[in-house]
Nucleic acid binder design. Structure first.
Lengths: 238, 238
DNA sequence: CGACGCGTTGAATGTTGTCAAACCGAGTGG
DNA sequence: CCACTCGGTTTGACAACATTCAACGCGTCG
């Protein structure tokens, strides 16, 4: 049992139950083992502690093993923009590539464990493992796609549509991790949601209340139960 | 004279007056020549014709030689989101990397000439030219940075702030191309601006009128003269 | 216990979107 | 040559949605 506990720093890539999410599917067993060799697993991070901060030197990319991470940018004027939420099995920190220093920051939203993958060693490794190289390009590309979807969301959609879309995103990502897609706990605060979606805290709160009144959701602080996923999808799709 | 005309397909990278913008600075003369060998220059594109479209096979990245290009995404529901405007010397089409097919589209906003750089040959070339490889990573990274800046703009800024920021962006990019930073012609329509900035055409138009009334701009259709760049910067910075 | 962070709710305000009309310049056909 | 249409743009009146400001509830922690 201990070996599969996500907080356990001893767990290796082969046994990690997230490996289907963060590793390329095509990897052979011995390749996973070689990757495993370079992955560094520290002890759990406390809530609100930084994985990296703006202007930190870029040296690694990260995978969430347990808990949850948010990333944010700081504009020249000091405005904070949350750019992503990352759940177990997901990769973050790729935007630092090609800069020598991070332009964003990453913090734990709750007690979390992460895997650190030194970038230089990953580069070496991908020279001899084409599927890793490809996977890695896909990750950068996915980052761009994600950002552009967020741009569309912010640019074209109402508060209700934005919140519905975020809830469905978390729902489907939970499903991938074999968790319930209809009942889950939001790791982030209302302020984080608002910041991410370009809304004020009050608006986010009101949307949750409205959804509850309309029977789409059951909301208890951060606990969410989706009661009418079709209606949410309807909202998210229009 | 003919050799420096930007529409001329015969002009090569060494002589192109945009080369300081689209090529890495560190390239040796003979390296430029090797790159020049793989660049394909077609005849000019007409206004509104596509460089590539959604679902086209990804095979190359592009540089603007003359004219201007816009890129846009199409959401599942068919909504169009303009994601970028590209001026001479700028590179576009990088978001197709790591997908086999484009997820976005690129169209000429006016008669334009472009350089096509086949991706597979660029990959080969960068194996032997470290500075090209690095430059190339920077481009992907810049795409992410740009997108995230747009996210912040859409998420946190008012209509006036968004328009001011776009104008200043074009102004400074013109300066890099040795054109006037205070007097220029906008290549894109009001509708494109609105789509890009998450505003309606009417709002964009009103903001231009207001800026003119306040003496920040002189607007004549697409011709713009910046009268008070400090005031614009003030707006863009807050 | 009180202070504090976080979330919710209410009322008023304001910015932006919507709808409608008109303008302008370019191109077309009578 | 003029009247016409058409696309892009501007402007106005109005409505709607989100923000702002304010107050309050609730749980946690010192």
């Amino acid at each position: 049992m201990a070996v599969t506990c996500p907080h356990n720093p001893e767990v290796n890539c082969t046994d990690c139950r997230m490996n289907s999410l963060c590793l390329p599917i095509a990897l052979e067993l011995d390749e996973v083992e070689r990757l495993n060799q370079i992955v560094q697993r520290g002890r759990p991070l406390q809530k609100d502690s930084h994985v990296y901060n703006v202007a930190d030197e870029f040296s690694a990319i990260y995978a969430v093993r347990s808990g949850s991470i948010k990333t944010y940018n700081v504009s020249d004027q000091g405005a904070i923009q949350v750019t992503g939420f990352f759940l177990p099995g997901e990769i973050f920190g790729i935007d630092g590539i090609a800069h020598t220093h991070y332009v964003s920051a990453a913090v734990a939203m709750e007690t979390s464990a992460i895997c650190e993958i030194p970038f230089s060693r990953l580069e070496e490794l991908s020279m001899t493992m084409p599927s890793l190289q490809r996977h890695f390009f896909k990750l950068m590309s996915k980052e761009i796609t994600n950002d552009q979807q967020l741009i569309t969301l912010l640019s074209k959609n109402s508060a209700e549509e934005r919140v519905a879309t975020l809830l469905l995103s978390i729902s489907s990502r939970n499903a991938k991790r074999n968790l319930s897609s209809l009942r889950f706990r939001l790791p982030m605060s209302r302020a984080d949601i608002g910041n991410y979606l370009g809304l004020t805290v009050e608006t986010v709160s009101r949307v949750f209340s409205r959804f509850q009144k309309q029977g789409l959701l059951e909301v208890d602080k951060k606990e969410i139960e989706i009661k009418d996923i079709d209606a949410l999808q309807e909202l998210s799709n229009i």
